[in-house]
Nucleic acid binder design. Structure first.
Lengths: 66, 66
DNA sequence: ATATAAAGTAAAATAAACTTTACATTTTTT
DNA sequence: AAAAAATGTAAAGTTTATTTTACTTTATAT
């Protein structure tokens, strides 16, 4: 699964740390997500999408191996 | 987090078992999701939403305690 | 009414998400 | 150039998702 968190974050010009605070997760979770280390829960995905004013489908996309 | 899987499944008239097969998870996972036992990963949410032709936001919604 | 399919449930096991702490590197600001 | 902020990373620990097996109950079909 791919995501555009880093891009969305750049557009909004917000730091990993403040994003983490806004969403209520650790900064390492944001960092790991951006790095593709793991797939977030749907709760997290919904919160991130809402924060960036995008749909989950816009922010996250399935890949062949999913 | 709430979801409308049971309703979407009724509309499509598909069984927990065949849905599970289509998506590639166990039948108990579908059952547990419908029963609100846990929150799926974003990969699963995207697959379910795609299967039902809905957006993740339509199929899943955050609640206050999230 | 009996057989069969579907749904509910539960316990144990495994895998994966997420946190915490802590430190190293890179980028930005002064 | 030095300081400060942001990012990258990693290991250990906790929590939660998901599977497997297996059994019970409810609904549907014959």
């Amino acid at each position: 699964m791919k995501n555009k968190i880093k891009i969305a974050r750049a557009i909004k010009d917000v730091t990993q740390g403040t994003l983490a605070d806004e969403i209520g997760v650790s900064r390492q979770t944001i960092n790991a997500l951006e790095k593709g280390k793991y797939v977030p829960s749907t709760v997290l995905a919904l919160k991130l999408a809402a924060f960036f004013g995008q749909s989950v489908e816009e922010l996250f996309s399935l890949e062949d191996e999913d």
